[in-house]
Design a protein around this nucleic acid. Sequence first.
DNA 1: TTATAGTTTAGAATCATTCTAATAATCTAA
DNA 2: TTAGATTATTAGAATGATTCTAAACTATAA
Lengths: 133, 133
Amino acid sequence: MLEAKKVLKKSNLRPTSQRVAIVDYILQKNKVHITAAKLITHFKNKNISISLATIYNNLNELADKGILRKFYVNNDKMWFDSNLQDHYHFYDSEKDELIDIDKNEISFSKSPKIPDGKIKDSINIIINLKNKN
Amino acid sequence: MLEAKKVLKKSNLRPTSQRVAIVDYILQKNKVHITAAKLITHFKNKNISISLATIYNNLNELADKGILRKFYVNNDKMWFDSNLQDHYHFYDSEKDELIDIDKNEISFSKSPKIPDGKIKDSINIIINLKNKN
DNA sequence: TTATAGTTTAGAATCATTCTAATAATCTAA
DNA sequence: TTAGATTATTAGAATGATTCTAAACTATAA
Ligand SMILES: [Mn+2]
Ligand SMILES: [Mn+2]
Ligand SMILES: [Zn+2]
Ligand SMILES: [Zn+2]
């Protein structure tokens, strides 16, 4: 069975052609940072037509299932990340591109005290890059 | 002269009633995290009417002048921060509220290598909080 | 004063994302 | 293998935050 189909089956998602295409893409390039717009463009270039609503539905579903991770970077674009490891990002605004920073490339020697009654949910670290000079 | 007016004068911004109201608010509560929507509500409660466009115009202008700092938190809301120190944030999604983390409450013992041809522009660290249990 | 440049505003426009509700595909039990 | 039920896809409308437009207003300096 196609790897993409296995992934979908394991998450109880029907292997529609659209889903297979999306999961396939994610599996092929491992460690992807995707945006709905980027995905649509990718599929358009390959003459695969998937509606924007479906792209969003599925990326969100995959995030719900824990196959992708979802977050936002600075502006109001939603990003999906197939790297499930704990990690951080450089953001290259020139290219509108994220670059992974491995968890062990940043170490904290001191961490702030969490406010009373609360616990840490997730940490977002984004280092915004600009061109030298 | 009113403190707010001095601030505006120093930045070459005409002290209109709307601007004075906004800067006044920022000066009174020092260290504020504001959102256009929050400001509008605040002024509505005090029966001061300032249009949404003006709120945005002025918050953005104040950010341009370096009187506020502008950034985004997770979702697509724009935040303005009157704390100009280098610092980070907790985000309490329950209350839709930011809490400052002083720069010296986090220390890095290891920092990632910046990609070639690039330099660090800014760092965003947001620790998302959720309620205990 | 008055002319000019700067400001405010209502409402339209934009853009990313979600919703709606009609249609289509997949699955399952018999 | 089907029929019926369930789940997915889709076009297009709706939403919400922000910005734009262009007309009316205000501050300022001469
Ligand atoms: Mn939005
Ligand atoms: Mn937006
Ligand atoms: Zn990543
Ligand atoms: Zn702050």
